[in-house]
C-alpha cells in the first residue's frame, strides 16, 4: 500500500502542470504558502479556534501576497482542503541590467532570458532593486533567485558569488 502511495504522489505526469495543490488546512504551517482569493500568499500567522467551545477546529490564516505584499485573511475548517500554490524558485546569473530596468539572466544550463524586470512596486522590492543595481555596478558577480507562482514571476533575492574587482 505504501509503495502505491508515493508512486502516485511523485510521478503523476500532469501534476507538474498544475499551479496549485490541495492540502488539509490543519497541516498548513506558519511561513508556508496558501491561495487566498486567488492570490498566492505566504502565511504570517495561523491560529485555531472552535465554533462554540465544543465545535470542530478551524484555522484562521493571516497571509501576505508574495508579489504585492498585500494582506489577506481566511477562515477554514481544519479538516478541509485549501489550495496551496506551487512556488518555483530558479537561480540565474545576472548578465546585464538595461536602462529600462530589464535584466538579462542565464540559468545553470546556459539558457538566457531577458523578459524580467528588476523588482518594483513595494518598498522592499525597490530596496532590493537598488541593492542589485549597486552590486552589479560594483562589478560583483550576482546570482538572483526568481520566484514564480501561479504564472507570475519576480526576482526575490540576490546572492553575491564573488566580491568583484
Amino acid at each position: 500500500m505504501a509503495e502505491e502511495h508515493h508512486d502516485v504522489h511523485f510521478e503523476s505526469a500532469d501534476a507538474g502542470a498544475s499551479t496549485t495543490f490541495p492540502q488539509q488546512a490543519g497541516t498548513i504551517r506558519k511561513n508556508a504558502f496558501i491561495v487566498i482569493k486567488g492570490r498566492p500568499c505566504k502565511v504570517v500567522d495561523v491560529s485555531t479556534s472552535k465554533t462554540g467551545k465544543h465545535g470542530h477546529a478551524k484555522c484562521h490564516f493571516v497571509a501576505t501576497d508574495i508579489f504585492t505584499n498585500k494582506k489577506y485573511e481566511d477562515l477554514q475548517p481544519s479538516s478541509h482542503n485549501c489550495d496551496v500554490p506551487h512556488i518555483h524558485r530558479t537561480e540565474y546569473s545576472l548578465l546585464d541590467i538595461t536602462e529600462e530596468g530589464y535584466v538579462s539572466l542565464m540559468d545553470e544550463s546556459g539558457n538566457q532570458r531577458e523578459d524580467l524586470q528588476l523588482p518594483k512596486g513595494t518598498d522592499d522590492s525597490d530596496k532590493l532593486a537598488a541593492q542589485i543595481k549597486k552590486d552589479f555596478e560594483d562589478g560583483k558577480e550576482l546570482l538572483v533567485t526568481v520566484l514564480k507562482a501561479m504564472n507570475e514571476e519576480m526576482i526575490n533575492s540576490v546572492k553575491v558569488t564573488s566580491a568583484g574587482s
Partner: peptide, 23 residues
C-alpha cells in the same frame, strides 16, 4: 523507502518545490 525514492527521483529539482511533495 519513500525518502530514498524521492531523493533518487529523476525530476527531483522540478518537483521538489511542489506543495504536495514539500508536505
Amino acid at each position: 523507502a519513500e525518502v530514498t525514492a524521492l531523493a533518487g527521483h529523476p525530476d527531483l529539482p522540478s518537483i521538489a518545490d511542489r506543495p504536495d511533495v514539500l508536505q
